[in-house]
Design a binder for these strands. Structure first.
Lengths: 122, 122
DNA sequence: ATACTGATTAGAGTAAACTCTAAGTCAAGG
DNA sequence: CCTTGACTTAGAGTTTACTCTAATCAGTAT
């Protein structure tokens, strides 16, 4: 079990962010008798997953939705699957777009380099 | 030459956004005698490029910087090249991260599917 | 005893990137 | 002639995702 400070350090977020996620019902850690948050391994895993999803521009509201499906348990498995598939498409699309841009940049860069070379030798 | 409304439609942005970009010195279209904005083909190309850059999470301030280098002309070619290379690295990194996530999703999805199948047959 | 550390809360503030409103002018097209 | 679509400045409002403040409390260290 980890304290909020430990989790923050491990995941490179601030304690503020963790409390914010709790307010937004994205994660609900346990509490000690004194009311301090305690995060388990599985909480950590879930948070790592959330952070990954964020890296793909998934908006918090969607992450929220996914989280709430989890809390509703087994009968939402289909829905969760749908959500994941949907998001995967999204990610694959992003990859596609980024590859295009990479290409574009490559071209622009070599155009610049060619230009600079010509100028050097003239 | 295109009016602001035409450009907005072509690029799927609002006229507000185009004026906003102008205020932010990202683009400076010509003007008619009456002061109406007129965008040329090359303005369009530049805007398309800007939009592409935005899809890679490049913040407006960086786009601004790039734009201002352009306006300063030839002697900033090196700097622009540097900026582009820098950004290309960024993009490639994003591609990498997204591929990882795609992988993760694939695994999660097939775990879900397996689970659902088992349940169907039991 | 008191200072420090790290926890708690509600709620205010921030940054980015728009997005829109107001309130007015101007000129071309049907 | 009137509607449409452009223009202007200035500034307010929105959304997302934090980010921070203030006031307080509990446990440990000196």
């Amino acid at each position: 079990m980890y304290t909020i400070g430990e989790v923050a350090k491990l995941l490179n977020v601030t304690t503020h962010t963790l409390r914010f996620y709790e307010k937004e019902k994205i994660i609900t850690p346990e509490r000690t008798e004194h009311g301090d948050r305690r995060y388990s391994e599985s909480h950590l895993q879930w948070l790592r997953f959330v952070i990954k999803l964020k890296e793909t521009k998934m908006p918090l509201v969607q992450i929220q939705e996914y989280a709430s499906l989890f809390l509703q348990g087994d009968r939402t498995t289909q829905k969760r699957l749908g959500l994941l598939k949907n998001h995967q498409e999204h990610v694959q699309n992003q990859i596609h777009v980024l590859n295009e841009i990479d290409d574009m940049l490559r071209k622009k860069i070599s155009a610049y380099e060619e230009y600079l070379q010509k100028r050097d030798f003239s």
